[in-house]
Amino acid sequence: MTPATRTPAAGGGAGPAPGRAGAGTRALRIVWALSAVAALWWSLGGLEVTPERLSRGLPQAGTIIRQMFTPPNWAYLPDVAEGLSQSVQIAALGTFIAAVLALPFGALAARNLSRLAALPLVGKLALNVIRTFPELVLALLFIRAVGPGPFAGVLAVGIHSIGMVGKLYAERIETVDRASLEALSASGASPLEVFRYGVVPEVLPDFLSFALYRFDLNVRAATVLGLVGAGGIGEKIQIMRTAQQWPSVGTILIGVIVLVGLVDYVSARLRARLT
């Protein structure tokens, strides 16, 4: 501990931020650290995470992981590919729905487009509320409406994503130069035309980039939707896990890792080219 307590003096001599940690803040940091440890203790205590459980569970987990990958069930690969492509389909269509439906929300929630101050607040609140409902809960709801399967997954992904995409849209619209919009309304353009000719050209590349980013996240989401019966590779995970077919689960995991990694890479590359 002795060297640690000397840090501020040493840092003050060498670094550009001297005197940030006085004696008072150091005490405060210790208090923070201690309360974090205490809170952690309290949390773990309530979770029945005991050394015995861990010592029993971890070797078992090790065994299962070994079974998954030594070797994985390559014969199951065609089924995995089918499940993965359905996950991609869910993500693609869901993202498209969200990208379109988020437009009115984004326009509504942007402060610089509205004459009423209350409207953007309502819009932002609505977007936050939408975001709060997890995809899985929405999926369970939509299964009620359209039955189990990928369609329910598309709807869950589509609706949930509106929250984030709409928020990003609104924030981007807020950075559009207000003066160029004023010029358009000065020439007699209607609010809709101001949006079409003043806002859309400025923000379109960024909107596409947001949609690509959300697609990336949605591919991940679409791999788990099947766990509650909403289509995609998750359904196969559920089946193989229940049947304790670990080598097949291993194949699925490899497939998911490759797919997510690939989509991540492609989405990042495309986004870099857009801006």
């Binding site: 130069d177 160029s180 358009l184 020439s187 809709l192 079409r196 000719y197 400025e202």
Partner: peptide
């Protein structure tokens, strides 16, 4: 100037016609 920066020059100039055209056309 207050031009729409990312639009072409011609698009910017055509914006002067917006008020004369039906909305469906301009959209």
């Amino acid at each position: 100037y207050n031009l729409v920066r990312r639009s072409s020059v011609l698009r910017n100039v055509l914006a002067g016609r917006l008020a004369y055209l039906p909305t469906w056309r301009t959209l």
